[in-house]
Nucleic acid binder design. Structure first.
Lengths: 204, 204
DNA sequence: AAAATAAAAACGAACGTTCGTTCATTTTCA
DNA sequence: TGAAAATGAACGAACGTTCGTTTTTATTTT
């Protein structure tokens, strides 16, 4: 019999996950403070008091969520395995992988809004401290080894890369229900990445 | 005697502004739902009930704020007056003007977070509908007349432009208290705009 | 200019509701 | 058979809003 690596989840673990899933849905829809413990309990399918067998407080639910849904869990490791001959290939692949992991609805991006809007960035440093140390070396290596890069500052390159990703999803949310969305190219993300790589100005 | 263009503000107008100013500060710090009417009243320097002589509800305060602080009020008109021989000059100037109007602390950007996080984009369409119709023609003209542009889709160009601005402020907020901020170039916005204009890849 | 007056503004107690959390108890699970 | 999990009533606190009243302001009339 192998050492117990992954037993069948216990009842408590199932409930705990159900609470987190319910809370995510509600937080994304109404925000953190406008979501009540009663709503969470109802959607998770248990009584109000039952939540407190798995979480000490409402805050702890949110913290549990941002830990479980944190990009360093799945997205970052996947992105770090991106490959490519040139810097351009590498970054294109990295974006593709990140998008695949983020999925259609970028839960983490929206959680970031909530965190910034309702917690004033209280958990922000935690979020960043997990990502930056892992990602920065990649961009440092990129700058050093790929001569095809115009940008020589790794931190700036990293900021620009993540900024591009974030701004894509934000503008997507903002324009998704407007006529502007219909004016976008077929693959807006490809076009977006292309601008990041080559800029908007035609080289003379 | 000139037609009455701007009389001295009445008492009510002064109080109304004081309430909005107090509310902005608190909303930016704690978010909308975590800010109470009592906090707003206290900071504005009047009694709880007094607020309701100027606003019908808490929601109406927020709406009053996003109308007063809306970019189409001051930022957009200023940006639309940007000039420049080439598209690059024009866009560089536009960014400079936008930054000057946004100021050090981009209140509108943070209000946008609150709106997205706590109102699920309820006012979003209003925000966009005011900006897009006014800004899009500028980018259309830009694409048509400036042959130096790689990007031919005006809507994409506009989205990319605003996305770049937004992502600059977001990443600034995120990294401002981390070591990454110290790794940035002297003028990060200039470097950021440069990437937007020319991309990160060196043309062969 | 002073007095009168009606509207606007300010006040703070009070209302009904909802909030997050606790608790004693019962049920389910290992 | 003990521990873990689930229950829902209960608690005190805080919420947005209302209300009757008083004070201040702005305008009109002396």
């Amino acid at each position: 019999m192998p050492a117990k690596t992954k037993e069948t989840p216990t009842k408590g673990e199932i409930t705990r996950l159900a609470v987190e899933d319910a809370a995510i849905e509600l937080f994304l829809e109404y925000g953190y403070h406008a979501t009540s413990m009663r709503q969470i309990a109802k959607r998770a399918g248990l009584a109000l008091g039952g939540i407190y067998n798995h979480f000490k407080s409402k805050d702890e639910i949110f913290e549990g969520i941002i830990i479980d849904k944190h990009p360093y869990r799945t997205i970052l490791p996947a992105v770090l395995e991106a490959e490519g001959e040139s810097a351009e290939d590498f970054l294109r692949n990295a974006v593709k992988i990140a998008m695949r992991e983020l999925g259609e609805e970028p839960v983490f991006i929206k959680l970031m809004f909530i965190e910034m809007a309702e917690f004033n960035g209280k958990h922000g440093s935690l979020m960043l401290k997990e990502i930056a140390p892992k990602a920065l070396p990649i961009f440092e290596k990129l700058v050093k080894t790929r001569k095809s890069l115009r940008v020589s500052n790794p931190a700036l390159l990293m900021r620009s890369f993540f900024g591009m990703m974030i701004s894509y999803y934000i503008t997507d949310i903002i324009i998704s229900k407007s006529v502007i969305a219909k004016l976008m190219p077929k693959n807006p993300m490809d076009a977006y990445v292309d601008i990041f790589l080559h800029g908007i100005i035609k080289e003379s």
